[in-house]
Structure formats: C-alpha cells, structure tokens
C-alpha cells in the first residue's frame, strides 16, 4: 500500500509487529521499500507479474483490531476488520436472518470469489488494497462501493475514515497508511446484491462483477441506490448513471436491466486476455438484474422479473 514503485531485488524480509500503530510506524519509515502483507495471495504473485519485491513486508492481518467484527442487526453500521478472510466473512455474513440485508451483497461477493484455497487466506483489506494496484476483478470492492462503506485507515499519528471510492480513486497513498477496517452502514430499509460472471462454473476471476444496494420506501419505491462494477475498467467504481435509473420507482427486472444498460453505456470496458470488452458490456443488464434479484430475494420487496428471463 505504498505510492512509489519498489526497487529491491534481494530476497524480501518480513518484519513482525505487534500493533497497528507499530505497523504504521514501520511502514512510514520504510516508505516505498515496505508494504503491508495480509493473506499474500496477490503479493506472492509479484514475480509472475514481473514486479520486483518490496524490501520489507509487514504482516498486518492478525493485528489486534484488524479482526474485529460486529454485524449485529441492531447496530446502524457493521464493523468489519480488514484482516478477516473471505471465508470468515462468509461464515459471519451468510446467515441472512440475523445479519442486516445491507450486507447481503458483500456476503455473496465473499462467497463467490476465487476458490476455497484463496478465500481461506485472502482478506478484506488485501482485496481492497490489491484493487488499487491492478486487481480490477477484486470481488469485495464493488460490494463495498455499492454498500456505501467507509474505510478506516490507520496512520503513524492517528486514524481517519474515507469512502472506499476515494481510497481507490486517489493517485497515491501516504506511506504508513494501513487499512484497519471497514464500516458498512446497515439501515433497515437497505437491500444489497451482487452478481458475478465467470466463463467456467467458478474458480476464476470474474469477467464482470456488479453490486447494487438500494434504500426502499415502505411503498416499494427506491429512494436511493448505488451500483458498482468491477473487472471492466482498471479500478472498480460506482456508476451513478446506473443508480439514477433505479431511483424513484420500484425495483424490478425492468428497472434493473435499464440500469444495466445505463451502466454499459457509462463504462469503458476494455478487451483483455480474459474477455472481450463488448461482452463485458453486453452482459451488464442481465448481471445487474441478477444482483437486484438477490437484493430483494429474502427481505426486500417482491421481485418481478423481466420478460427476458427469470433471474438465475
């Protein structure tokens, strides 16, 4: 999570620390030579990406504070430590009855991502951090963006909160900044969903991932909405054009597909080895429909599919 390119070619060192503050301090001193290490699944592939190692890695996932979790339905927001693994998130968020509906998209993203061997070690914080540096398919990130999550960042001299989008969008990050946790607002009338498309059954990067969350009035009208997509552009992002389509009407298959079309029009989906850009755009309406169907599947408003097909 450093701003400048690392330069070291020697075997990297791992420096254990005992607190978030210490980690922050050490990384601040190291500057571009250091980076935080969580599950390691992204960093360990640096040689495969022809990226040099940093000189020093500081393990952070197990630090006190990074493994906190509070998803009580009575709280106005959920608190998720950055060191939680995808598997742990699934275990904590999968129970749809006692967990706020606003977290359903994040739960699905954690559950559908990668495969067990990666989910068991890859962390919430690592997913967010990697999304800044090339991992545009990071599944948790669109879900966090759509959920309106705020990142809790630690620094040598204190802490700060930032919206996820700001963290992803700003050019550089200060040395010593550590992702400590995520706060996700959980208003009772917020419903969230996630859709992920792969070529195979699973076990690979998403060709497209899309997340949605909506705040719904008692009469079923969507009061506000957020739509985020990943894998299409260099960094996952919110698509306000798509969200706008959902607002002021009930959430159903038709509005979801219209929003998907708006998203398709708004994104710059590029070709890469994994999928052609036109395809990534083309599937957005259906994928957003699936995400919206999930958002409303348990506790949300009744779902009406489009004529174009049942949600899967």
């Amino acid at each position: 999570m450093t701003s400048a390119a690392p330069t070291s070619t020697a075997a990297p060192e791992v420096r254990a620390v005992s607190s978030l503050e210490e980690a922050s301090q050490v990384l601040a001193e190291l500057g571009p030579d250091g980076a935080a290490l969580a599950g390691g699944t992204w960093i360990m592939r640096r040689p495969l990406r022809s990226e040099p190692w940093h000189r020093v890695y500081v393990p952070v996932a197990g630090l006190p504070g990074l493994r906190e979790l509070d998803v009580r339905p009575t709280s106005s927001q959920a608190q998720l430590g950055a060191g939680l693994t995808h598997t742990e998130l699934v275990a904590e968020l999968a129970d749809g009855t006692s967990v706020p509906a606003a977290l359903a998209g994040l739960a699905a993203a954690a559950r559908l991502s990668a495969f067990p061997q990666v989910r068991n070690v890859a962390t919430l914080g690592g997913n967010i951090a990697a999304a800044r540096v090339g991992f545009r398919q990071a599944d948790l990130v669109p879900a966090l963006l759509a959920a309106g999550a705020r990142l809790q960042l630690g620094y040598p001299d204190g802490r700060a909160d930032r919206p996820v989008a700001d963290f992803l969008g700003e050019a550089g990050r200060p040395a010593g900044e550590i992702l400590a946790g995520v706060a996700v607002p959980t208003p009772p009338d917020r419903f969230a969903g996630f859709g992920r498309l792969t070529v195979r059954g699973a076990g690979e990067y998403a060709v497209v991932n899309v997340a949605v969350s909506v705040d719904v009035d008692p009469d079923g009208t969507v009061r506000s909405a957020r739509v985020a997509v990943g894998a299409l552009e260099p960094v996952p992002r919110l698509i306000p054009e798509a969200a706008a389509v959902l607002v002021g009407r009930p959430l159903d298959g038709t509005s979801a597909r219209e929003a998907g079309s708006a998203a398709a029009a708004a994104v710059d989906a590029r070709d890469d080895r994994l999928a052609p850009g036109w395809y990534r755009r083309a599937v957005l309406p259906a994928l957003l429909e699936r995400a919206c169907a999930q958002a409303t599947s348990t506790t949300g408003p009744a779902w009406t599919a489009t004529d174009e097909g049942e949600p899967r």
């Binding site: 791992v14 290490l37 390691g40 360990m44 890695y57 393990p59 070690v121």
Partner: peptide, 11 residues
C-alpha cells in the same frame, strides 16, 4: 486448505 505456493513461510 491453502495454496501453499502462494503462502509465504513467514505467515
């Protein structure tokens, strides 16, 4: 289960 090729020995 973890993919041991991606798991740093330090962890």
């Amino acid at each position: 289960p973890v993919a041991s090729c991606l798991y740093p020995v330090a962890l």
